[in-house]
Nucleic acid binder design. Structure first.
Lengths: 332, 332
DNA sequence: CTGAAAGCGCTAACAA
DNA sequence: TTGTTAGCGCTTTCAG
């Protein structure tokens, strides 16, 4: 592998001139420019970014932390981040946590070690104060994690409002016995908290009862959805809700599958709302009414914000691109 | 940030001793070991992996090249790769190509620059000879890209056989007018080639006709599937196939959606087979018969193979884990 | 067992 | 406009 020294020698110049050329400094005569370039070509020279980084302390790698890449929400998010990063010549290091706090710490340590120059956290399990303490090693931006009491820069949507509107829609459609699924618990801290707040507020404003046994916690997968449906159908007809608002399309899908298998008509006997608007939801047995998140915008804005911090420039988040949208189909 | 120098000073030892400790060399007295460790703890020392890399030429980052991470096949593959890599303390740099050869070259250049120490190619657009020429800069393994004439190490499944069996299954079920979708073209080089070969062979062995207008090329998305269905339904009833074998669950889904919307019964009027066995396929309006790929095994084996090459050890691919499986459901 | 010293490939003062 | 030089933080001979 040719080094800057080889190039300098071949071009009969000093390494510093070559280095200047590399960093397109001014004050290099055109004649030397050419000599350098042709020497580089001849040697197939590529600068060692490792050496550059060691010396200049500037990297080009940004870390992206997600809980699991196979969740389409995250794969679309990573897609948007990677595309945006590439535009500014940054690379993307992926790390999955599977909700393990230790994995989060590992990524943060990479920030400390300068393996990555900044990090986008799309999932947070560790204590926010601990997370904040890592800021001294490089910029950290939170993506889709609403932490109102934290000073960390964050790119978020208004989940509370979206759920409020979603529940409002159900009520408008004539459903008044509304069950609810959350990925966390009723007292949890993640964005589940905001969704639940929207749900409770909507109930309150519409003078609808909040029934404990219509609440399902910690639901995530299609299998979880089936279980929810099973419990629902075990209820006597009078005790049964007429609609269910879920925290994910997967859960909604599981509920739908189980109901259909047990001859429960959707939406007549039970209306179902999903969350995320994943590609397959329009082609389910009963096309799913759901809420779309502005995933691409979340990824883009987070990345632009992070890169701005990395480069010491200012960036104002375009909050208008960050709206959730109710997608009306047939399940509710 | 504390450096090795600070640690050495605090422990009142030389940097070389500390370095030895770091690399767990033998020949360090227990007493010094402790002194070093407590100095490190006190300073919250973390070695700079950049400096280590510059000096030792050994990195810990492996590149993974996929065409698009939002394709579930790839997100599951990346998931498996990342998990396996983590086990051996390697990190994963993701790069999407969107089928752009230049993006591939960019990743390969990162290999040259030592940003990554090795690369797993899950998608190939550039010339194989060009790709091979990059081998001198670090190990390259092909994942799910069958290149029989290349010397590059590769982890592959027998797609030809799987399709042969899939078509055989359709024939067994009584379908004899079989249409076919491919993601490439009939003359393409990717793994599409092997699938098509399996299709043609199955037709031949069963003395079934190969009809040009039952072949659809370059199909990928749900939208493509709808278009295929549209063209199919435009055919007169006698000219229409009674089954269609597709290259992806998305395409199959699009076909199903369009057919159902146009009162064409699945599988009675048209049997549909998908490819990939994505999670949602079991809950479609008509649960999809499809072919499951051993994605996790592909990811694991590729990663283990790459890491073995990186570390100079031998690794024999476990081909038995690499089988495709026919998943029988209701669409065919 | 331990230390001194010479770099890895590059950047950035400081001089010229 | 260009060259000299001193490191970045670490590993690795080579001598004790």
């Amino acid at each position: 592998m040719a080094t800057i020294k080889d190039v300098a020698k071949l071009a009969d110049l000093s390494v510093s001139t070559v280095s200047r050329y590399l960093n397109n400094h001014p004050y290099i005569s055109d004649e030397k420019r050419e000599r350098i370039q042709s020497a580089m070509d001849e040697l197939h020279y590529v600068p060692s970014s490792i050496a550059t980084q060691l010396r200049s302390k500037k990297g080009t790698m940004i870390g992206v932390l997600v809980s699991r890449i196979t969740n389409p929400f995250f794969s679309y998010l990573v897609d948007a981040i990677e595309k945006q990063a590439k535009k500014d010549n940054y690379n993307v290091l992926i790390m999955q946590t599977y909700d393990d706090p230790n994995a989060e710490i590992k990524m943060l340590d990479m920030l400390k070690q300068q393996v990555i120059s900044g990090v986008i956290m799309c999932s947070i399990e560790i204590d926010i104060k601990l997370l904040e303490s890592y800021q001294e090693f490089g910029p950290i931006v939170l993506c889709n994690e609403n932490m109102p009491h934290s000073i960390l820069p964050q790119v978020v949507t208004n989940q509370e409002q979206a759920v409020y509107q979603g529940i409002g829609y159900l009520i408008n459609q004539g459903y008044h016995k509304i069950a609810y699924c959350t990925g966390g618990t009723l007292t949890s801290k993640g964005h589940g908290k905001y969704r639940t707040r929207g749900f409770e507020q909507a109930l309150l404003d519409n003078k609808l009862p909040f029934k404990k046994h219509w609440i399902f916690q910690d639901t995530h997968t299609i299998a979880d959805g089936r279980q929810v449906a099973k419990e629902l159908l075990a209820l006597s007809k009078t005790e049964r809700p007429d609609a269910i608002f879920t925290n994910s399309d997967e859960v909604a899908t599981g509920i739908m599958e189980y109901c259909l298998n047990h001859k429960v008509a959707i939406p007549n006997e039970l209306a179902i709302m999903g969350f995320d608007n994943q590609p397959f939801t329009s082609v389910l047995a009963v096309p799913l009414t759901t809420i779309a998140q502005p995933i691409a915008a979340l990824g883009e804005e987070s990345t632009r914000l992070l890169i701005a911090k990395l480069e010491g420039t200012a960036y104002l988040i375009n909050q208008e691109k960050l709206n959730l949208t109710l997608i009306k189909r047939e399940s509710a």
